[in-house]
Write a protein that binds this DNA or RNA. Sequence first.
DNA 1: ACCGTACTACGACGATCATCGTATGATGAG
DNA 2: CTCATCATACGATGATCGTCGTAGTACGGT
Lengths: 125, 125
Amino acid sequence: MRTISHPDRSALRLDAVLAALSDPVRRSIVSRLAERADGHSCQTFELPVAKSTATHHFRVLRESGVIRQEYHGTSIMNSLRAGDLDDRFPGLLSAVLAAQRAESAADRRCDGAAERATPPSADPA
Amino acid sequence: MRTISHPDRSALRLDAVLAALSDPVRRSIVSRLAERADGHSCQTFELPVAKSTATHHFRVLRESGVIRQEYHGTSIMNSLRAGDLDDRFPGLLSAVLAAQRAESAADRRCDGAAERATPPSADPA
DNA sequence: ACCGTACTACGACGATCATCGTATGATGAG
DNA sequence: CTCATCATACGATGATCGTCGTAGTACGGT
């Protein structure tokens, strides 16, 4: 059985957590992990990067203590360490998740508005 | 009169804000700015980096929308854009600030405990 | 035993970042 | 006007990061 090492709850570093959450790909992973609490294999995330890059991002998230990874056969169950994070940094994770949702929504509105506002022949390039 | 450009409140990007806050030097600036609401010149921060590096950090904070900078004679008044940030990303700034305080406190406790636990002749080197 | 699947390890690459020293611009004081 | 002060601009440098492809490991199914 393969086991993976995780930082202890008390070893979580704000530096590492913020750095982990500052990447959009990783934030997208975290967002999707927050939507449904049960674990997900790395496969179920359709990320816009190569497989090895995805592995890298999952590792950064795990080593910073944001997610937990456990083997289930050949695949890995990923889950958010929401409790541990909220214990050490209360409100931080939920604030980031909320901000992420807010920004996505705003961007979608903005894109739509921009499209509607674009003159018929306009090509910004 | 020199003026400095700031991103509009609606132009704040979560990516940029989190990246700005993921650096310890910048987080230390933000923390001290949050303690006392009135503006401070860059000088009053005794940062462990060279002057040009400090300028760089202030710029990152300004361009990401975390702080506001305004000239007052030759010096610059720095202030936190707490309102704008809280409008776009509610609770994010305060969560980061609280986390920063919590971690600093925990680290101080930890260091003290480590020192007390160090054997009399121990020299880690 | 064999093969396919799920993920990792490793090395490489270009990009970005934090850092610095020095030179420069702007402002207020003498 | 001249000078000191505050901050910036401009390279330069070493470190880290995100990305990738390829090769490898572990596990389950046939």
